[in-house]
Design a protein around this nucleic acid. Structure first.
Lengths: 120, 120
DNA sequence: TCCATATTTCAATATTTTTTGAACTGTTTC
DNA sequence: GAAACAGTTCAAAAAATATTGAAATATGGA
């Protein structure tokens, strides 16, 4: 994952509304929710929800699909996993002579995302 | 991990300077770096570095230790792991009848943090 | 004690992000 | 095709965050 993308993802998760929103979509993965359902869960106006959805969408953390007159949103779990990998990838590599006791703590399983390269 | 803390952590990671800064400290874990060393790695003024260090410190993502006239900063790896667990904990639980193909992808190993409770 | 070093705090400014209400687009139903 | 519905876009105001330079604190060494 590129620095720029990781940055925009953490920026996207930096608002309380959007963190709640993203976690809601993670919870309702893999089917996701339509905008109206999301609005019922979170206490925000439609306009504001739309703004935050767009922010998450631009960051690439969620996807959108048209469904009649509804719009369905889903968390992009592989992107989330890549972001976690980005954060943890270089753990303790600053001192190559020491070995890192954290390295094994996070494993991003290749089985889930066979089509992507892993940095961990 | 509480919602409020997770929120402040993602807010802390939402600036490009702070994301670079935190990843630098993850890289130089577990020894960390003193402020002056950090300044050499990142291209920011002392004042600004201080501001961003304080933000990460308040969020609990890094720790600070006095060392003579230096201040040593370290990434708090367990807090980072808790945050990752917070983000991923409820994955796919919205549909209990379906089983979650992502659940196994992230494992936060208890061996690394025997003194804390795990939400994952 | 005086000076240099390491780093922080303060106050002002600049920039970015969030929120709001009103108006708009597209879809379904009658 | 008109009405109702789902959701978005727009523009303005409000709020939060980042950056800067100058001044302050605190340590270590001559």
């Amino acid at each position: 994952m590129e620095t720029k993308q990781a940055n925009s993802i953490f920026e996207a998760l930096s608002s309380d509304v959007r963190l709640d929103l993203f976690r809601l979509l993670v919870k309702y993965a893999p089917d996701g929710l339509v905008a109206g359902e999301i609005a019922k869960h979170l206490n925000v106006t439609n306009t504001n929800l739309s703004f935050h959805l767009k922010t998450l969408l631009r960051a690439g953390l969620i996807t959108m699909e048209k469904e009649g007159r509804f719009l369905r949103y889903r968390a992009d779990i592989p992107v989330m996993l890549d972001t976690i990998a980005y954060l943890t990838a270089e753990c303790c590599t600053g001192h190559p002579e020491q070995n890192c006791t954290h390295r094994a703590a996070i494993s991003v399983s290749p089985a889930v995302r066979p089509d992507r390269g892993f940095s961990g």
